[in-house]
Amino acid sequence: MDLQLSGRRALITGSTSGLGEATARLLAAEGAEVVIHGRDSRRAQAVADSIIENGGKAAVAAGDLGTDAGADRTAEQALAGGAVDILVNNAGAYEHLNWAEATADIWLNAYNVNVVSGVRMIQRLVPAMRERDYGRVITIGGGLATQPFDSHPHYNASLAARHNLAVSLARDLAGTHVTSNVVAPGAILVPAVQDFLTELAPERGWGRAWAEIEHNSVREIVPNDRIRYGRPEEIAGAVAYLCGPHAEYISGATIRVDGGTVRGAF
């Protein structure tokens, strides 16, 4: 299936690793020129170089989206190569803290990093999309927005806000050819998650081999129909579909990519 992304330019925030990097690589493979973003320009350049070596088109935009100045720099660099047709708001931060540990200052920082950072990029890039009457905004949310754990409440709440702002933006863009949607991953296997689960496995009795640990930890923590964790490439696939013209009639939607997760209790 041709997603018809050739000639489009996409900025993927937080794309030097994990879900963001996987998304950038898939969009580039589908013909889009991707702008790799991160706070570390060298890491961003390394991902961009790898994409170019594999026949794709890539540029770099570095900046801390937690500040207005950093967002300005990021937008300026992203636009240097041409108009941005696709904005994937992926950048964010996560701390595993309980209610007692998550102070008010930590809540405020989580909201700034996970919510306002995306707003900054929307305000800098979406007006031009509206003017050209074409664009795609995809916000990476998560299942914890609607099925929160009892821990890391600040992060759960920030995800809920990401979902909410994406729908509000879709309503504001009504009547245009610019859409706003959410891709909500479930538990996704990235190296940090695998390391954490492997370390936790002995005390939880999940086994020693990774196949055992994955199977048993999924059943205990995030029961889902696939009985496994998702992979970054599976999130990227949902994002890529929403970026193209085949998804023109999808707006204000939340696309769950969670294996059919029904509950969570960590």
Rank of each mutant, 00 (worst) to 15 (best):
A184D: 10
D68Y: 04
E95H: 07
A48V: 02
S41N: 02
A265S: 12
L242I: 10
G81L: 03
E248V: 08
R256M: 13
R132L: 04
A157L: 06
N54H: 15
G260T: 08
N164Y: 14
Y111G: 07
D172R: 03
S151F: 12
R219D: 15
R162P: 01
D258K: 05
D225C: 05
A48R: 05
E76Y: 01
I213P: 06
T261K: 11
E30C: 10
G18W: 11
S50T: 07
R130A: 12
G63I: 04
F266L: 12
G70L: 12
N112W: 00
G141E: 14
L97W: 14
H37N: 15
Y229A: 04
E30A: 12
T254S: 09
E214P: 02
S180C: 05
N224Q: 09
D49L: 01
A166T: 11
I106F: 05
L200Y: 06
M1P: 11
T13N: 04
A24Y: 02
H215P: 00
V167Q: 14
A247P: 00
A170R: 07
V113M: 13
A44C: 01
N90I: 12
V193R: 14
T13I: 08
E101P: 00
E199W: 10
P148G: 12
N98F: 10
I188T: 14
H163Q: 09
